[in-house]
Nucleic acid binder design. Structure first.
Lengths: 198, 198
DNA sequence: CCTTGTGAAAGCATTCACAGCC
DNA sequence: GGCTGTGAATGCTTTCACAAGG
């Protein structure tokens, strides 16, 4: 039986082994003292806890470059996500194949969500369309929304929204870059803060 | 002079006002007791601290759907990022305009990085090409890399890498979705952890 | 007054260190 | 013997609460 120790996993992940053991302990007691963790069993338990063993149908709304990139993104299928439909308001796009799926018109949204029991929607539309799409998704029964549009969405209680801003990570890099440059010369003006986030 | 209080800002951001004041205090003492913060001055100070007042030339490597989506993404320009060049290994793409910029061949990488003093590179290539592109970027002088490819990059000390996994946010939504569904019925099997991350 | 800026207190997260168990 | 699981200790973050100051 292939096993792995908390020490090995911690080294691979770059964290402290006690933290790793404590985190695992919240999921249950899946290790064996003196031996380690049964790899296969551990993978299964973590997958189940994270919801990776379930099938999650999602709809992607807005099939521009970003929507197409998301539809083609391999990481979704391997984590239990199934693209139930690609939707766009542009009738010229209707029927075109993207990542092997036909683009369908936004007016089919309600039917598709109901027929496929979709609970997760991905918004890759321009900012101006995002709120209206959100309202329709929510009315149709979607309770989780991943928003790539650069706008804040309002939703009723009970609906989760996560916003992805593609430039935030770039901004974090630029922040560190600025710090690197500043290490060998004085700041151009003003004070250097004593503490800043990593 | 338009001002804003820590209480107003905290309410808008959904955080505690004391935390907000303490965070601001690390940047300096920019408020006025009994009045609040001068909006314009505060915006300037925060912008400067975050590096938003600087110009950051970036190159985007891999002009598929994702690369094109990034090139078109409006959020970059407004935060001080300037796309110095779009690069791709596909010669068929060379010269094509994406977001108003011509796609250039990957072999121009070294020249472009040097000529534009690029310190930040964005990788939107397939996983297989990412490490090689990284090595070339680093050799050319890039010290910060934003990686959208689903692979772990190795870089020398002094180079920052941030990895963006477009499916992680979706996974977080699915995790909460699973929890919602589980609230009204017993777990299918196994224990419910006492604590899980938000 | 009113609101900032900040010590002190409270609340969390991480790490230590070792008893418990295979 | 070796590694997990976990109380206790440590360290960090957030909040409280109020003196300081316009």
């Amino acid at each position: 039986m292939p096993t792995v120790s908390s020490e090995e996993l911690a080294a691979a992940a770059g964290v402290n082994s006690a933290k790793l053991r404590k985190d695992f302990s919240y999921l249950g007691s899946y290790g064996t003292r003196g031996v380690g963790y049964d790899v296969e069993y551990l993978v299964y338990q973590i997958s189940r806890e994270l919801g990776l063993t379930q099938d999650w149908p999602v709809v992607i709304v807005g099939i521009g470059n970003l929507g197409a990139a998301l539809a083609n993104y391999g990481g979704f299928a391997s984590r239990g996500f199934r693209v139930a439909a690609l939707l766009d308001a542009d009738t010229a796009l209707a029927g075109r194949l993207v990542a092997g799926l036909p683009v369908r018109h936004i007016d089919e949204l309600e039917t598709i969500v109901a027929d496929n029991q979709v609970s997760i929607g991905v918004i890759a539309t321009p900012a101006g369309a995002a709120q209206e799409v959100t309202d329709r998704l929510v009315a149709a029964g979607v309770t989780s929304i991943l928003n790539f549009a650069p706008t804040v969405l309002s939703v009723p209680d009970g609906v989760d929204v996560r916003k992805v801003d593609l430039s935030i990570e770039l901004q974090i890099l630029a922040f560190h870059e600025q710090r690197k440059a500043g290490d060998d010369r004085p700041e151009p003006d003003g004070d250097v803060p004593a503490v800043m986030p990593a």
